[in-house]
Each structure stands twice: as C-alpha cells, then as structure tokens.
Design a protein around this nucleic acid. Structure first.
Lengths: 212, 212
DNA sequence: TTGCGAGCACTACACTCGTAGTGGTGGAGG
DNA sequence: CCTCCACCACTACGAGTGTAGTGCTCGCAA
C-alpha cells in the first residue's frame, strides 16, 4: 500500500487507465471535500461529483479510510508540481522583489481557487485522528518548504532554514485566515502584508532593504 | 436567536439551570468535535460524551445546524475570558519580554489542551459552508486581536494594528502547524521561534531590541 | 393545596452511509 | 479462435443519523 512520494507514476502508463480512474475520483473527492466538508464526503457523493455511476468510488476505494488516504496522496501530486514550476520560474536571479512576487502570486492563486487548500486544511485536521494521513500530508508541506529553502540559498541570502520557517508559518496563517474568516482581522491590503512579512522575516540580517 | 457576544449571562441565574445544561452539552460537543471531527459530531455522540441520556442534546439543539451554532458561541464564551485575564495579568508594565512570554504561554497552553483550538479550526472551515457560524467565530478572533492591540498601545510601542496583524497571522500559523502536522516543518525550538516572531514583527521600528 | 407549564427521558421513523458481494464485459494471452 | 481475468455497474443489508413526537415529572403561581 505504500506509495512512492517522489514523482510516482510507476512507468509511462503502465497498464489500463486505472490511474486515470483513480485520479478522476480523487479530484472529484477533493471538490466534494471543499464543498461539503468531511461530513459530506461519501462514496456516493464522489460518484456523483465525478459523473460516474453509483459504486464507482466504492469499487476503487473499498473503505472510507482508503478514500481519505487516496485524497491525501492526490493533494500531494497536485500541489507539488505547482511548487516545482513556480520555483523554476523564479530561478533566474532570486531577489527580494522575486520573493515578494512569489508569495503574492501564491496567495492570489489560493484565493482564486480555494478548494484545494481548504481540502488540504481539512485533511490536516483529520490526520490528527488518522495517522496514515500524516506521511503524505507532511510530504506536501515539506516539499513547499524545501523549495523555498533552495530559493533562498540560491539567492545567497543571509540566514537559513530557520528564517524560512518563520515566513512559512506566517503565510500559512494568512492563507487560513483569508480562506476561513476573511473579515476577522483587517486583511484589506493582503499584498502589503505579504511584502512586510517577507521583508521582516526573510530579509533581516542581509543587505538592508533591497528593491523598492 | 441572536445572542449577545459581550459577556451574555442574561442575569444572575435567571431561572432553571437551562444555561448550565446548554453549556454542559456544548462542552461535551467541543470534546467530541476535537476527538472525532465534524463527521463524528452527532446528537447521540454528544449525549454520550456528556453522560446524559439519549435525546438530551436533541432536545436542546433541535437541529444539527443549531448544535453547530451553539458550539461556535460556546467557543467564544470559553476562549474570550482567557484572553481577558491573560491581558490583565500582563497589564502591569508591558515590555518586549512580556510580549514574548505572553505568546509563549499562549502556545504552550494550546499545545497542552489542543481540543479547543482544534474544534475552533474545524468550525472555521465549516463556517465556509454555514454563514451563521461566521459571526460568533469572527468575534473570537477579533477579541484576541483587540486585546493584543490594546496591550501594544499601552506599551507605547511604535507601529499599530498593522504590526499586530502580522504577529497574529504568524502565531495562528504556528498553532495550526504544531497541532496538525508537527513534523512537517522544523519546529523543535517553538519558544525560540516565537521570540523571533515577536522581535521581527512587533519590535521593528521601536527601540532596538529590548530585554535579553 | 391545586393546576399549570417548562424541561426532560424516551421513542419512532424515514433516510443515508459504509461495505461487500454478484454478475457481466471486453480485451490480452495462448 | 478460445480462455481467462481485471475491471466495472449494480445491488443488498445492517448500522447509524437527523428530526420530531409523546407522555412524565417537578417546581412555581394562585
């Protein structure tokens, strides 16, 4: 049952489109998860969301635990490539402005399509009660963190992983607040908030204030 | 149905201990919520957790929506007094060390008794789908924020609410990470992380580094 | 003391869910 | 061409859930 978290895909379409079927169901499941929550996430609801006949989800994921595990792995598959290409995109010459822009775009994308992040958040909470979810979800978060550390190192900036942790915590909190209770804190100028977070958490100790 | 979010308690035990009954059920409900998630939160489960006969919860909260709303309000009731007394405790002479200590104790308490925060997080996500939960939950978060702003102002520190927002986001992210995926990011030295967050997010612009 | 009504324990019922089983089908291997 | 088997659509069933109804009980007003 252990799946390889480092770019799986057993070979190039090893057999029948069973993978495609699995992914189709998982994507539908993630939509259901964001739309109706863990309570609304049932085999039949996933069938309906995927436009498949009743029982399809139940055939692939025999138990509910298996379905949740599948969703957790799918979150990793869908979120990690994003991070890789985002990093590659900014690989040219990392600057402070690049940092800010990167984070702003990240948050902007999350706000435009909140369902994946909401599903991830929900699965994170569920991992408190289902240990089998911890590994795939940890992989998601760690992949994002590692990408940022690499970016930081390539930029030749002062500080190390300890500084990036701070930024990650803050951006994570920002995303949670923006998605779940946008009116609780004064979050009108999200871009400005991100800018200040990057400056204060990442660019302290290195050259004073680069860029605008 | 609108409840007063500013220290309710209609009078001094206005009648029968109906309030007590309600609170008893809500507290049990919050425990269930943290232990089994929104999916495991059922009328009968709350009955069992409260040690009351079957139907007790169903009698007070006729529908599931009413139960969730009751839980959201109870979270506010239980979390806000904490903040008030915490603030009062540190009211003497606010310093940078007080800030750090305050946040460290907050996180320490959350880690020691995670069920309330987990329940709050779960309700926050649910508020995405149930608008009636937004108001009471927003009140919780805003109360904590306001307390911190007051603390900051009393300290006569530079900066204003904009700085506190940053700290709130970061601490919120820290709590989420510590509770849900403690091994994803390197969070061994939580106290040190908090210290750095306070220094960089709140004490920038004011007197350079006060205290140890 | 008597009557009343609020809150309570208990129950009923229709509905959905998780899970597993069954038969059919279509394509690959011999 | 035949055989076999993985995959799929469909169904069955017990358990649990949301919700509402029915009397009982006990403290207070008259």
């Amino acid at each position: 049952m252990q799946r390889n978290y480092i770019c799986s895909e057993p070979s190039t379409s090893d057999r029948r489109p069973i993978v495609s079927r699995r992914d189709q169901l998982c994507d539908a499941g993630l939509d259901v998860l964001a739309a109706k929550g863990l309570r609304g996430l049932t085999h039949r609801a996933v069938d309906a969301a995927a436009g498949l006949p009743a029982g399809a989800c139940s055939n692939v994921f025999r138990t509910r635990a298996a379905l949740l595990e599948g969703l957790a792995e799918r979150v990793f598959e869908r979120l990690t490539p994003d991070l890789a290409e985002l990093e590659a995109e900014a690989a040219a010459e990392p600057t402070r402005d690049q940092w800010v822009h990167l984070m702003q775009q990240l948050v902007r994308r999350v706000r435009a399509q909140p369902h994946l992040q909401l599903a991830l958040l929900e699965l994170r909470i569920e991992s408190t009660r289902r240990p089998e979810l911890v590994d795939p979800l940890t992989a998601v978060v760690r992949a994002a963190f590692d990408a940022d550390v690499a970016f930081h190192e390539r930029a030749g900036l002062a500080g190390g992983p300890e500084e990036i942790v701070l930024l990650h915590l803050a951006i994570g909190g920002l995303i949670t607040d923006v998605l779940t209770l946008p009116d609780a804190l004064p979050l009108d100028d999200v871009d400005g908030i991100i800018e200040r977070l990057v400056d204060r958490l990442v660019f302290v100790g290195s050259a004073e204030q680069v860029g605008s």
